Simulated assay, not measured.
Amino acid sequence: MKNTILITNKIKLFTCWLVVNLGGIVHSLAQDKYYGIMPVSEEKVVYEEVVLVDSSSQVNLRKKAKIWFIDSYKSSKDVISLDEDDEIIGKGFFKTIMQGGFMNSYPVDVQHTISVQFKDGRYRYKISNIQLNYQVVITQNTPPRDVSVPLEKWVNGSQKNVEKRFLIKLDEQIKLIIDSLKTGMKKTEKKDW
């Protein structure tokens, strides 16, 4: 009886060890796919953070986020898809250039979802669902081909140098959006105008 309990406990312990280590390996492989450049959550690129803001109410944080959306995008009405008391979700995009091989470069529209959630004294932003839209010219005699692909499918390891350069550039541009949001959320209201 004691041997059976001992063996059962060892099996449980080994199973726990296996689950923990396999989880780490899966996370490591997902991170390696993006060369350690971009944050990954559940095999998707996701930038998110909870930011503590002293003595700011949920209402005040929401107001600051709304102003940030208005100031940051040409048409906030076209960008904002959800506008609730505790969350604003927008679908934005920015333009960048992808440097391909042989001195090729492609203008790329990068679409993304950005959500900002609010609670008293803190907010959480999340940038996800990154979609790349660009045109590829195969030969001079064929018309350009439109490509629209989620970032997670675009990164496949077939052109590592191109992927790395582009991911670094993309990461920098997304961090500029995050910095802009954080600056907007720190602004104090002008009471006397």
Rank of each mutant, 00 (worst) to 15 (best):
N129M: 08
W193I: 15
N60W: 06
Y125T: 12
G24Y: 00
V50N: 04
E152M: 05
I88N: 01
L18M: 13
S128T: 15
W154H: 03
Y35V: 00
S148M: 11
V59F: 05
E189G: 03
I127N: 01
L170Y: 12
K153W: 02
S55Y: 05
V79R: 06
G36N: 02
I5T: 10
I88H: 01
L6P: 09
K95V: 09
N21D: 00
V155A: 03
G92M: 12
K186Q: 14
W193V: 14
L176R: 01
L22K: 00
I127T: 03
I89S: 09
T4E: 04
Y34R: 03
D71M: 12
Q135L: 06
G184F: 03
T142M: 03
L61S: 06
R62D: 01
I5M: 08
D78F: 06
D86P: 04
E189K: 08
W17H: 12
T4W: 10
I88M: 09
V45Q: 04
I11V: 07
K186M: 11
I177E: 09
P150A: 02
K153I: 05
Q159W: 08
Q117K: 14
I80G: 13
F94V: 01
K186G: 10
S76Q: 11
V53I: 12
L6D: 08
V40C: 03
V59N: 04
I138Q: 12
M103E: 10
S180A: 00
L170M: 11
T188E: 15
I138N: 09
Q99C: 10
S105F: 06
I114D: 02
V136S: 03
Y123T: 00
V46Y: 02
A30Y: 10
G101D: 14
D85W: 05
K160Q: 15
P39T: 00
S72L: 07
P39W: 00
I80V: 15
L13W: 07
K44D: 11
K160W: 07
L151K: 01
S128I: 13
N3Y: 04
C16E: 12
F166I: 13
S81R: 13
D78C: 13
H27R: 13
T8R: 06
R124E: 12
N3K: 11
S72R: 09
I97D: 11
M103Y: 06
F93C: 07
G100Q: 05
S76V: 08
Y47F: 14
V45L: 02
S148A: 07
W17C: 14
I25F: 06
E42N: 14
